[in-house]
């Protein structure tokens, strides 16, 4: 289902975290929150979609932490950005979702396990977390999402249009776009 405010307001750019073929037919973009259980449930399904459509799909992740609802979502997003400075964004993204049930109840202490699991330097990460650019980037993602009509997490955009429906139909919608282009 689409409406006028449900079009991606901020095009994908070099500032984004992108996985997959830059020339893919389909761009699947997620606005996500690392502490959101629904995003945690979507994570393995996104992996399946990436596997299934391989070179025909690129995946973009943007931050949309609902910090009042999920008290460690903001810190988790910051940690992913600090890992990104070390070139490890996707490793941290995956760790946060794969271990969400373990770290989320433990908050900051739970998140420290991610720093160790990725073998990142704790002092470097701690210093990076104080950089105001990290917060600014997350806020920029968030407000871009608001302007794009994000109404909760996760919100998925297929080639720039907000997708509102269940996951099976998302897979089929992506399949149809690819089929049309071939």
């Amino acid at each position: 289902m689409l409406h006028e405010d449900a079009i991606l307001a901020v095009p994908v750019s070099a500032h984004d975290h992108v996985q997959g073929n830059a020339h893919a037919v389909v761009t699947l973009l997620e606005y996500g929150d690392f502490q959101c259980p629904a995003c945690g449930s979507a994570y393995p399904l996104v992996k399946q979609i990436q596997h299934r459509y391989a070179g025909n799909l690129r995946f973009v992740f943007r931050h949309f932490p609902l910090a009042q609802a999920h008290p460690y979502a903001q810190l988790a997003a910051e940690l992913a950005e600090a890992a990104a400075v070390e070139g490890r964004f996707w490793a941290m993204h995956d760790w946060l979702y794969e271990n969400q049930a373990a770290w989320a109840p433990r908050g900051a202490a739970g998140l420290e396990a991610g720093v160790r699991a990725l073998d990142l330097d704790e002092a470097t990460i701690a210093a990076t977390l104080r950089d105001p650019d990290i917060d600014a980037r997350i806020r920029r993602d968030f407000m871009g999402g608001v302007h794009s009509g994000v109404n909760g997490t996760p919100s998925f955009y297929v080639n720039g249009y907000l997708y509102q429906g269940d996951f099976d139909s998302l897979v089929h919608a992506i399949g149809r776009v690819i089929a049309r282009q071939q």
């Binding site: 289902m1 405010d5 449900a6 307001a9 608001v146 302007h147 794009s148 009509g149 994000v150 109404n151 909760g152 509102q164």
Partner: peptide
């Protein structure tokens, strides 16, 4: 049943 978001 549709959450209108905040863009508008």
């Amino acid at each position: 049943g549709v959450n209108p978001g905040a863009a508008g």
